[in-house]
Computed example of a mutant assay.
Amino acid sequence: MKKVLVLGIGNRLMRDDGIGVYIAETLLKENESGEIQYLVGETDIDFCLRVMEGVDRLIIVDAVKSDREVGDVSCHPIEEIGFFQLGISIHDLHLFSIIPVMYPLLHVTVIGIDVECVDFGLGLGQVLELQFPRIVHDVRSMVCSLLDE
């Protein structure tokens, strides 16, 4: 059986940027099957990279900003995300830049939730807060669809 990890990342101290964390926490509480491992990585790159060891399929849930509506859920291969310019120090790197280097054979998909309010503060902005149950449902359905591929 393949080992599948759904990893919620983001910064819960930056309002909507924490959406991936909140979704992973919710799905972890609801997880009955045990077929999928749900974890919260937040902004801890070292932790995130360690838990990927031995994983066959990685699905990252994170906040994105695009031309879509706030609350839209979209799915992208990690190669499409655009964080692949290597900087000159570790502070210039993003998790998405390091994964292909450390785990070149790992199948990685990013489920992105379009956000509005990325600023200092706790909790989601009003738009995402109102849509949260639907967003969790959409992410859960997307994870199931990805596993059927």
Rank of each mutant, 00 (worst) to 15 (best):
E25S: 14
L7K: 12
V73P: 01
L7Q: 11
E80G: 09
I9C: 03
L122S: 13
V136M: 02
L7R: 11
F132S: 02
G123E: 03
E42D: 14
I78Q: 04
C75R: 10
C144M: 13
R15K: 15
G54F: 07
M1W: 03
K65Y: 05
L58K: 04
H137M: 09
L13M: 12
L58D: 03
G112N: 04
E35A: 14
E42Q: 13
L130S: 10
V21D: 02
D56I: 02
I99D: 01
I90V: 12
V136R: 07
Y38F: 15
D56F: 12
F47N: 11
D92P: 02
C144R: 13
I36N: 08
L27S: 04
M14W: 09
M14C: 09
I98D: 03
V61G: 06
E35Y: 10
D72E: 12
V139D: 02
L13W: 08
V55M: 10
M14A: 11
G121W: 11
E32V: 13
E32Q: 15
H94A: 14
E42T: 15
L58Q: 07
S145I: 08
V127R: 11
V40I: 15
G20T: 07
E80D: 14
Q85I: 15
L146K: 06
E35I: 10
E32D: 11
V6K: 06
L124K: 12
F132C: 07
E32C: 12
R140V: 07
A24W: 12
F96W: 01
I19Y: 01
E69R: 14
G10R: 06
I23L: 09
I113H: 01
S97N: 03
G41N: 08
V110N: 00
S89Q: 04
V61Y: 02
E25W: 12
E149T: 15
I81L: 14
N11S: 10
N11G: 04
G8I: 13
P100M: 00
L5Q: 10
D62A: 04
P133S: 02
V6C: 09
D114Q: 15
D138Q: 13
V40G: 01
P100N: 00
V118E: 07
C144H: 12
M142H: 03
Y22F: 15
S97V: 05
V118D: 07
F47P: 04
H94Q: 08
G41F: 09
I9P: 01
S141V: 10
P133A: 02
C117Q: 13
L39Q: 14
M142L: 12
S141E: 12
V73M: 11
D67A: 05
H107G: 06
Q37E: 15
E80A: 14
D16I: 00
V108P: 00
F132V: 08
R68W: 01
D44Y: 10
V61R: 06
L5D: 03
L7G: 05
E69T: 08
V51C: 11
H76I: 12
V139G: 07
S74K: 09
G123I: 10
F120I: 14
L95Q: 04
C48Q: 08
N11T: 12
V118C: 10
D67S: 07
H91V: 09
T109L: 07
G54D: 05
D138H: 10
S66E: 02
L39S: 09
H137R: 13
G121P: 00
L124R: 11
E30N: 14
H91Q: 08
L147D: 06
I59V: 15
V115N: 02
D62R: 05
